[in-house]
């Protein structure tokens, strides 16, 4: 019983330096989106990790918008600010509304942990969203 408690305490303590390390470095993001019941509205999950440490980044503040590479500057998607997912460090979620289906460059502009920009390209189809 006592050893279990120690393990429970030791887990976060061991993870803390890694998270602190991840907090100062440039982020890397894995984006997964899926269609919702609403037309052209997609639910997206953002897994934010440190680019070098590969540790989840907590407390990240970033906005997400999108641009169509085939029609640059012609479509302006309303930016969203993803919220952290409870119980999943480094995971954030949000709903993005696009203007049409096709290939979009998802742009994530970070204010925290560092000012940075990460771009991922996704193809939004009728039934699924795929990465390049």
């Amino acid at each position: 019983m006592r050893s279990n408690r120690l393990r429970l305490l030791a887990g976060p303590l061991m993870l803390a330096p890694a998270l602190a390390l991840a907090a100062g470095e440039r982020p890397m993001v894995k984006v997964d989106c899926e269609p919702t019941d609403e037309k052209l509205v997609f639910h997206c999950m953002f897994e934010v990790t440190g680019r070098k440490s590969h540790q989840p980044v907590e407390g990240a503040a970033f906005k997400v918008n999108a641009d169509m590479p085939a029609m640059p500057m012609a479509h302006n998607v309303k930016p969203i600010r993803p919220e952290p997912v409870a119980g999943r460090p480094g995971s954030y979620e949000g709903r993005i509304e696009l203007e049409m289906r096709g290939e979009w460059a998802i742009r994530m502009t970070f204010d925290e942990p560092v000012r940075d920009i990460v771009i991922e390209k996704l193809t939004f189809g009728d039934a699924a969203v795929t990465t390049d």
Binding site: D67, P69, M71, A74, R107, I119
Partner: peptide, 21 residues
Amino acid sequence: LYAHMNTYLEPKIFNVMLGVH
């Protein structure tokens, strides 16, 4: 100006659609 705002470029961006517009 576009390059520095977007921070990312790819050849597909500069297709004929942009010219037509």
